[in-house]
Simulated assay, not measured.
Amino acid sequence: MRVDLFDFELPAERIALRPARPRDAAKMLVVEGEAPFADRIVRELPQILRPGDVLVFNDTRVIPAQLEGRRGEAKIGATLHKRIDLRRWQAFIRNAKRLKPGDIIEFAQGVTALAEERLADGSFTLAFGGDEPVEVLLERAGTMPLPPYIAGKRPTDEADRSDYQTMFAREDGAVAAPTAALHFTEGVIEALDAAGIVRETLTLHVGAGTFLPLKVDDTTDHAMHAEWGRIDAKTAARLNAARKAGGRIIAVGTTSLRLLESATGDDGVIRPFEGDTAIFITPGYRFKAIDGLMTNFHLPKSTLFMLVSALMGLERMQAVYSHAIAEDYRFYSYGDSSLLIP
C-alpha cells in the first residue's frame, strides 16, 4: 500500500510534552465497531470493559539508553536499539559520518564503547568497555531516550525517569516505553480487579526502530526492526482459556498486540514464544489473538497508524483522528488514549 495513504495533518500544539497528572486523568476515545465515538477518561475503563475481559500489559522496563559522547573532536550521539549480548548493542548514531569501525566513543562518567561494525541500515554495533554490567554504565552515563518529537522541544529531566516508565516495568531492556500503559495507576488496577477484569503480562523489549518514520513510498518496501519478546507457557494457557470462556483479549499497547499476534497460529491458539519478532501489520492483516486494543495516538505515516488502520479500517481511523484533533486530544507518547474494539 502507498505510505501517503496514512498521512494526516497534526497541529504541533497537539503533541504532548508532559503526561496527564494524575496519569489516569488522561482522555480516552472509545471506538467500538461503527457505534458513535465516546469521549471518556482512562479511570472509567473498569466501567467500559466486561467481567472476564483480559488486559495484556508489557512489563518491559525502559533503560537510560540515550548517550552523548565524543570520538576525538567529533560529537557523537548514540541511541541503543537492540541488545546483542551482555556487552554489545545495536545503536542508532547521530553524526555517524564522523564514526568508523574501530573507533572508540568516550561517553560521560568514564564510559566507553568500541564502534565494531556499521550495519546495512546505517546503525552501528557498539561494544562497551570495562567489567561493570552495561546496565550500571547506562545508569551512570545515559538519559531516558525520549522520542525526538519531545526531546526536540525540551531537555530530558529527572521527572522523565519516572514519567516515561509504566507501573508494570520489571524487565530491563526497552529503549522506548510501552506508552499505552503509562496511564494506569494503583486506583485503576484496584477498580479493574473489583470489576472482574483480568490482567496478564508479557515482555517485549521495545526498540527505537518501532517509532522511526517510513522512508519508502510503499509499505512492501519497509523492513521492520526486530524486537525480542517472551510469552511463557502459563500465560499463553490462561489467555487461551479466557478466550474460550468468552472473555475478550485487549492488548494494552501495540507492543503487546504485536507479540500476541506473533505467538498465535492460524488456528487462533496463543503459544509460548521467546525470540525476535519483526511483524509488520498493515490493512488486510487478519488478527488472530486480540479482540481490542488500548493505545495512544500515533504519528502520520507511521507503522503504528498502519496497525490501528488494519484493526479498525483506514477510513474509520481517519475519522477517529479527525475527531481527536478537533476535540483537543493530546498525541503521542505522553498523550491521551484510545480504546479500539473492532
Rank of each mutant, 00 (worst) to 15 (best):
M28T: 05
K288D: 03
A278Y: 08
Y285G: 10
T255A: 13
G247D: 06
L146R: 08
Q165H: 10
R161C: 14
R21A: 15
F280G: 11
R199N: 07
A237V: 12
A108M: 10
E227L: 04
L212R: 12
A233Y: 04
L99F: 11
L86C: 13
L202G: 06
E327N: 15
T203E: 07
T79L: 15
V56Q: 01
V320C: 05
G209Q: 01
L340N: 02
K153I: 10
D232P: 03
G335S: 04
S262M: 02
H225F: 08
E227F: 04
I104G: 06
L10Q: 00
G196R: 07
E32K: 15
D59F: 09
E9K: 15
D267M: 09
S256Y: 01
G187Q: 15
A191W: 09
T295G: 08
V136Y: 11
A310T: 05
L182C: 07
P22R: 07
M144I: 15
F37P: 03
P272W: 10
D221G: 11
G110I: 09
E116F: 04
V198M: 14
T185N: 06
G130Y: 06
K301E: 14
G265Y: 01
V320Q: 00
R50D: 11
V175P: 00
R230H: 12
D121P: 08
I325H: 10
K244M: 10
T219E: 01
D267Y: 07
A169H: 06
M167T: 11
G122N: 02
V3C: 11
V134F: 11
G209R: 02
V206R: 08
F6S: 04
K100W: 06
N240G: 07
M224S: 02
V175S: 12
V56S: 02
L67E: 03
P19Q: 05
R61P: 07
R248P: 02
T255S: 12
G69A: 08
F184Q: 00
R71K: 14
V216F: 08
A16F: 00
G284W: 11
D160Q: 03
E34L: 14
E13V: 02
L212D: 15
V31P: 00
E200G: 05
L314M: 14
A226I: 13
